[in-house]
């Protein structure tokens, strides 16, 4: 069985997986849409979220989507050093994003706006937290991949996995755009 065949199958499989993941996010978005008015007398979105902070978060994640693209270009050119650098930059950006998200969560909980406060906050924490969890998985995946590039080089076996990692990362970026729009921007309208 040739590598191309395996690669194509895995790629199709991964696309289908991404679709299923999107559907799971769809449930969380729908839940958020239904429950966000139900603040049960607690704080609402407008009172809680700081748009500039989230805007910076968003820009960081968008940049990381760009840098992972650069990393993949390096992979196609078989430029190992360059690939490692760009994956490294992406990793740091992703880590910063995750750190900022945790910081935001921490502040909210400190203000007494935890997921136990209202259905609105339950759905907020779950939606954004699930995205954060995906980012963490992506970061772990990226870390392992970098070790493998460093040790084994850019073989077809590794490259096939890197293609899917990049897809995953872009996917998370798209999901975040939706979160940014629906959760944060719309609360200001």
């Amino acid at each position: 069985m040739s590598h191309t065949e395996t690669h194509e199958r895995s790629l199709l499989g991964f696309w289908i997986y991404l679709m299923t993941d999107l559907l799971s996010f769809g449930v969380l978005f729908a839940t958020y849409a239904v429950l966000s008015p139900n603040t049960a007398g607690g704080p609402n979105a407008k009172e809680l979220f700081s748009l500039p902070f989230v805007l910076i978060e968003t820009l960081i994640l968008l940049t990381s989507s760009f840098t992972v693209g650069l990393a993949m270009l390096a992979v196609f050119k078989q430029a190992k050093q360059q690939a490692l650098i760009w994956f490294g930059v992406t990793f740091l950006l992703g880590l910063t994003f995750l750190g900022m998200e945790l910081y935001e969560f921490n502040n909210l909980i400190a203000e007494g706006a935890s997921w136990e406060r209202s259905a609105f906050l339950s759905s907020f924490f779950t939606l954004v937290g699930t995205h954060g969890l995906h980012i963490s998985v992506g970061l772990l995946w990226m870390a392992v991949s970098m070790v493998m590039i460093w040790k084994r080089g850019l073989t077809p076996f590794i490259n096939s996995k890197l293609t899917r990692l990049a897809l995953f990362w872009h996917f998370l970026d798209i999901v975040w755009i939706f979160i940014f729009t629906i959760v944060y921007l719309l609360s200001y309208v």
Binding site: L23, S24, V27, L28, T31, V34, L35, N38, T39, A40, W115, E116, R117, S118, A119, F120, S122, S123, F125, T126
Partner: peptide, 24 residues
């Protein structure tokens, strides 16, 4: 996703499907 939400209600006290605090 639905099972995750139900188990969050049961494990960490979220309010997705509870009758109180805005759950539905």
């Amino acid at each position: 996703a639905t099972l995750v939400l139900l188990s969050l209600d049961r494990l960490i006290g979220t309010h997705f499907f509870t009758s109180t605090m805005g759950g539905n």
